[in-house]
C-alpha cells in the first residue's frame, strides 16, 4: 500500500512538472514574440536606437528564461536562440535594418518552435 501511495505521489509530481514545463515554455515564447513585434515595429518606423534598447532588454530577459527552460528543453535549441539574440542588438547598432529584420524573423520562428515543443500535439507525439 505504501508503494501505491508512492506511485500516486510520483504521478502527481510528474503531471505537475510536465504542466510547469509546458506553461514556462508557452509564457517564454509569448513574451518573446511580443518583444519581437515591438522591435520589428521600431525598425519599420526607423527608430533603430529604440529597437536596440528593446533588443538588449530582450537579451537580458531571455537570460532569465534560459535558466529555467534549460531544465527541460534541449540545450542546442536554446543556444541557437542565444546566438540570434546576441547578434540582434549588434545589427541594430550598425544600422543593418535588413539583417536585424531577418534575425527577428528567425527568432520568431524559433520561439514558435519553443512554444510547440512542449505542447501535447500529434506531431510532437508521433
Amino acid at each position: 500500500m505504501k508503494r501505491l501511495w508512492a506511485a500516486c505521489l510520483l504521478t502527481l509530481g510528474l503531471l505537475l512538472s510536465c504542466w510547469w514545463g509546458n506553461q514556462t515554455a508557452q509564457q517564454g515564447a509569448s513574451q518573446m514574440e511580443r518583444a519581437l513585434s515591438s522591435i520589428e515595429q521600431a525598425i519599420e518606423t526607423g527608430d533603430l536606437s529604440a529597437a536596440t534598447i528593446q533588443s538588449e532588454a530582450l537579451t537580458h530577459q531571455w537570460a532569465t528564461w534560459h535558466r529555467v527552460l534549460c531544465l527541460f528543453l534541449s540545450h542546442t535549441t536554446l543556444e541557437q536562440i542565444d546566438q540570434n539574440l546576441a547578434a540582434l542588438p549588434r545589427y541594430l547598432q550598425q544600422e543593418e535594418a535588413g539583417l536585424a529584420r531577418a534575425t527577428c524573423a528567425r527568432l520568431r520562428d524559433q520561439s514558435e518552435n519553443l512554444r510547440d515543443s512542449e505542447s501535447i500535439l500529434l506531431e510532437n507525439i508521433l
Binding site: R3, L4, A6, A7, L10, T11, G13, L14, S17, C18, G21, C70, L71, F72, L73, S74, H75, T76
Partner: peptide
C-alpha cells in the same frame, strides 16, 4: 549527452517506475 537536460531522462524513468508500480498493484 550533456546537451540533453537531465530532466528529459528523469521524467521517463520516473514515469516507467510509476507505471510498473500501478501495473503490479
Amino acid at each position: 549527452d550533456t546537451g540533453q537536460p537531465l530532466v528529459s531522462g528523469l521524467i521517463p524513468i520516473v514515469c516507467l517506475i510509476t507505471l510498473e508500480l500501478f501495473m503490479s498493484f
